[in-house]
Amino acid sequence: MMNRNSYDELRVELYELMDRLKKERYIPAETLCGLTFCEMQVLRWVYMANQRNEDAKPSDMARHFRITPSAVSQSIKKLESRGYVARMRSDADSRVVRLALTDDGLDVAERIQEKHIAFMNDLFEYVGVDNIEQLTKTLRLMLEFLEQNPSLKRCDRKEGDSCA
């Protein structure tokens, strides 16, 4: 059994580590074509949607990344101006906008994906598959706990707002 001080120390360390993971954006030292982290994520999102033969919709992207549609739109505008993505109307519903990669965008997205895979391979090698499996199991249990306790609410706040 863990004593009170060890429990408190472990709790503090867990909070600090979770906060660092949330705040830090670890990207390769050589950023690709001067893109921001968010722009790389947008390209990768569109690339992955195309791989699954799905529409890449800005609204889905905003929900997935838990950012505002405005933030997604800003990144898309920058990527459009660089000739990496194009907005297209959906064939099924003309009100729906979907994103497509240009040839240049596909080239950059493939390089981003290659770097992502290399990063994950290095991470797995360094941390070890058994540790990654244990971490995944632990995170699943933590999420299950949170989902099963309706008294715990997500703090949906805007950047800079406090949340008690």
Results as ranks from 00 to 15, higher is better:
Tyr7Gly: 02
Glu9Phe: 03
Leu10Pro: 00
Arg11Asn: 11
Glu13Leu: 10
Leu14Met: 11
Glu16Val: 01
Asp19Lys: 13
Leu21Gly: 15
Lys23Glu: 15
Glu24Tyr: 09
Arg25Pro: 03
Tyr26Ser: 15
Glu30Thr: 11
Glu30Pro: 02
Glu30Asn: 13
Cys33Trp: 04
Gly34Tyr: 05
Phe37Asn: 11
Phe37Ala: 12
Cys38Asp: 04
Met40Leu: 05
Gln41Leu: 14
Leu43Phe: 06
Arg44Met: 10
Val46Phe: 06
Val46Met: 00
Val46Gly: 01
Tyr47Ala: 00
Ala49Tyr: 09
Gln51Tyr: 08
Asp55Met: 14
Ala56Met: 03
Ala62His: 09
Ile67Ala: 02
Ser70Pro: 04
Val72Met: 02
Gln74Glu: 08
Glu80Gly: 01
Ser81Asn: 15
Gly83His: 05
Tyr84Asn: 13
Ala86Ser: 04
Arg89Gln: 06
Ser90Arg: 06
Asp91Met: 12
Asp91Leu: 03
Arg95Trp: 03
Val96Ala: 05
Arg98Lys: 10
Arg98Trp: 09
Leu101Tyr: 01
Asp103Arg: 14
Asp104Leu: 15
Gly105Lys: 03
Asp107Tyr: 11
Asp107Asn: 10
Glu114Ala: 14
Glu114Cys: 07
Ala118Asn: 07
Phe119Pro: 00
Met120Cys: 08
Phe124Tyr: 14
Phe124Lys: 14
Glu125Tyr: 09
Tyr126Leu: 05
Val127Met: 07
Asn131Tyr: 08
Asn131Pro: 00
Leu135Thr: 06
Lys137Ala: 09
Leu139Gln: 01
Met142Trp: 02
Leu143Glu: 06
Glu144Cys: 09
Glu144Ser: 14
Glu144Tyr: 13
Pro150Met: 11
Pro150Trp: 09
Ser151Glu: 14
Ser151Pro: 00
Lys153Ile: 10
Asp156Met: 09
Asp156Ala: 12
Glu159Met: 12
Gly160Cys: 15
Asp161Thr: 08
Ser162Ile: 01
